[in-house]
Nucleic acid binder design. Structure first.
Length: 228
DNA sequence: TCATGATCATAT
DNA sequence: ATATGATCATGA
C-alpha cells in the first residue's frame, strides 16, 4: 500500500491554509457544492459528515487519511462547527475515540487527544435545523491552540476520565463528568461493542466511547477570539 | 428547550 | 471492528 499522498492542492503553509479558510466566509453550502460539482443532500440526517467533507475538499485536507491530523505536514486539525445566528455552537465537538484498553504508559503529554488539539482550524458553519442546508453559510475561520489555562482544563478532565477507564469504571462514566471535556458513546449503534476493563479488572465488552468538547468551552474559545 | 445517549455514512 | 466525518432525537 502507498502512504497517504498529499493532495495536489493542499496548502503548504499554515497561513495559506488559514487564508483559504477565510476566503470561504459568506458562501452558502449550495454555492460551494455546486462549484465543487458535488450533490447536496436535503438534510444531514443521513449525511452527518457532509459539511465536514465539503470543507475538507475546499481546504485540501488529506481525505480518508489515517494520519494524526487533517494536515499532517502542518500539524493542523480541521473542525467544522455548527453554530446558530449568534455564532454559538449547536453541538459538542468530537475529538477522538477514548482508548479503553492498552493505556499503560499513556500520559497527558503523549496522549492522542492533546496532539489532536495542539492546533485546530475551526470553521463555523450555520447549523440551525430550521434553515435549509443549501442556505447555510460559512462563518469566519479561527486558528486556535489551547492557552495555558485551557490546556490545564483539558489535562484535568482527561486525567480524571482516563483514571476511571483504567480503574474499570468506564460504564459509570456519563457525559456529566468533566468540566470542558466529556465522554459519550461513539458508535454505529448500541450493538457495536469493543473491549474494555471491568470493575474487577476483568475484560468486558462495552460501547465504544469518544471524547467530546462541551459546547460552553467551544463557545468561549470562539467568542474570545472574535471579541473586539 | 436542550443535553445525553444513540445513531448515520463510508472506507479500510 | 475501527477510523474518518459528525448530528440526530428523545427523555427530563
Amino acid at each position: 500500500m502507498y502512504n497517504n499522498p498529499l493532495p495536489p492542492n493542499t496548502p503548504d503553509s499554515e497561513q495559506q491554509l488559514y487564508q483559504r479558510a477565510l476566503a470561504l466566509a459568506g458562501y452558502t453550502m449550495k454555492e460551494l457544492a455546486e462549484a465543487a460539482g458535488l450533490p447536496i443532500p436535503e438534510n444531514l440526517k443521513r449525511d452527518k459528515g457532509w459539511v465536514g467533507m465539503l470543507l475538507e475538499h475546499y481546504l485540501g485536507a488529506c481525505a480518508g487519511s489515517k494520519a494524526e491530523q487533517d494536515f499532517p505536514h502542518l500539524g493542523v486539525e480541521l473542525k467544522t462547527i455548527p453554530v446558530n445566528a449568534q455564532g454559538k455552537p449547536l453541538e459538542t465537538t468530537f475529538v477522538c475515540v477514548a482508548p479503553l484498553i492498552g493505556n499503560i504508559g499513556i500520559t497527558w503529554e503523549n496522549s492522542y487527544l492533546r496532539k489532536k488539539l495542539r492546533r485546530v482550524l475551526w470553521v463555523p458553519v450555520e447549523g440551525e435545523r430550521n434553515k435549509p442546508l443549501a442556505q447555510r453559510r460559512v462563518g469566519t475561520a479561527l486558528l486556535w491552540s489551547p492557552d495555558n489555562h485551557e490546556e490545564q482544563q483539558l489535562r484535568r478532565d482527561w486525567e480524571e476520565l482516563m483514571d476511571l477507564i483504567v480503574l474499570g469504571k468506564v460504564e459509570s462514566i456519563t457525559a456529566r463528568h468533566g468540566e470542558i471535556l466529556q465522554i459519550r458513546p461513539k458508535a454505529a449503534n448500541s450493538r457495536a461493542l469493543t473491549e474494555a476493563i471491568g470493575e474487577f479488572g476483568q475484560p468486558i465488552t462495552t460501547l465504544p466511547r469518544g471524547f467530546y468538547l462541551k459546547k460552553e468551552f467551544t463557545a468561549t474559545l470562539l467568542s474570545k477570539h472574535f471579541k473586539i
